[in-house]
Computed example of a mutant assay.
Amino acid sequence: MRSKKYFLFLLFFDKLSPIKNYAVLNAIIVDDEEFARSSLYFLLQENCENVHVAGIAKSVSEARNLLSQHAIDLIFLDIAMPSENGFELIPQAQNANATVIFTTAYDQYALKAIKANALDYLLKPIDIDELKEAVHKAVKYIKLNKAENNRNESLKNLANDLNDKTSIKKITLPSGQGYRLVDIDDIIHIEADSNYSVFHLTNLEKIAVSKILKEYEEILPENRFVRIHKSSIVNLKFVKEYNSKNGLQVVLNNGETITVSRRRASDFFDKIKSYTNIQGEN
């Protein structure tokens, strides 16, 4: 049997609270693969007592019928399905005010888009503890019912990125008690601060995110963003100059100067040369 890799990813959530404190959530599972449907149903039944599976659908069409018949809080939604993909269900999910957890086989680009537009994901075979944690977070988010516009916008961004498959356009960043949708053209550079990544934006704002720099190195377009130091990623669009006065350094348009480590110098030169050539052709 051909093995597949899948991802579950939760669109928006907040800090954990005990799941037993909340009412039961009505959920539906939407997946064209029988094994995926039955295994997820079993895991939910055995481990997530606050989730009631109100229906199981093999297609988007069947899922629409379920949404019209039941008040649904949570949707476990496959993306790659015959006839219609999971994104075709998004308008109905939004109208129902349902939180969506996607399940999808992925390629490398899809994974980047997922990470850019979502805040959590689980790799199949699903780890029970991770599933329980994701449900906890979904319950908390549903209870708070915050950032509805951001959630919808993030869904649209993800759909657009996956359909385009050329470059990530926006990235979702947790910020305080909410979430920020940031255009990658507005990111000057990102610096590591312990286990945080600090985004420096064109409006002089700084956003600290509790994820390590490597995660964003993998997400952002490599022809535009280059890691020049273990603590720094720069957007080539904002490189004003580079020099070797005190070792190799990059000067950005905002006046900041960042050192390029010796082991990353060759990659930086290759990327800046390629980027400059592309800009010259445009």
Rank of each mutant, 00 (worst) to 15 (best):
N246Y: 10
E241G: 01
K237V: 08
Q249F: 02
L236H: 08
N246S: 13
G247W: 04
N253L: 09
V260M: 12
K237I: 08
K240Y: 09
L252W: 03
T259W: 00
L236T: 10
T259E: 13
N254L: 09
N243A: 12
K240D: 13
Y242F: 15
Q249Y: 03
V239D: 06
F238I: 02
K240P: 00
V250Y: 07
R264N: 15
G255S: 03
Q249R: 11
L252P: 02
R263E: 06
Y242W: 15
G247N: 06
L236V: 09
I258W: 02
V251S: 06
F238P: 04
F238H: 13
T259F: 10
L252F: 02
Q249C: 14
S244F: 11
Q249K: 11
K237W: 04
K237Q: 14
E256T: 12
R263F: 06
S244H: 12
F238V: 04
Q249M: 11
N246F: 12
N243W: 04
N254R: 08
N246L: 10
L236I: 11
V260Q: 10
K240H: 12
K245Q: 08
F238E: 05
Q249E: 15
S244G: 02
T257F: 02
K240R: 14
R263H: 10
N253R: 08
L248N: 09
N254M: 07
I258S: 00
R264V: 01
S244M: 12
R263Y: 06
N253M: 12
E241A: 14
S244E: 13
T257M: 11
Y242N: 09
K237T: 14
V260C: 13
R262H: 14
G247C: 06
E241M: 11
Y242P: 02
N246I: 06
K237Y: 11
L252T: 01
V251Y: 00
N246W: 04
G255Y: 01
L252D: 04
T257P: 00
S261I: 03
G255T: 00
S244V: 12
R262W: 10
K237G: 06
S261M: 07
V250F: 08
V260G: 10
N246M: 08
K237P: 02
T259M: 12
E241L: 07
E256Y: 07
V250P: 05
V250M: 09
K237A: 07
L236S: 07
N254A: 09
Q249W: 03
R262L: 15
Y242I: 06
S261Y: 08
E256R: 10
Q249D: 12
L248E: 07
Y242D: 07
V260S: 06
S261D: 05
N235K: 03
L248F: 09
S261R: 09
I258Q: 03
N235P: 05
K245D: 12
K237D: 15
E241F: 03
Q249P: 00
T257E: 14
N254D: 15
G247D: 01
R262N: 15
K237C: 09
F238R: 04
L252G: 04
V239C: 09
E241R: 13
K245P: 00
V239R: 08
L252M: 13
K240I: 04
S261F: 05
T259S: 14
V251C: 07
R264Q: 15
V250C: 11
K240G: 03
G255K: 00
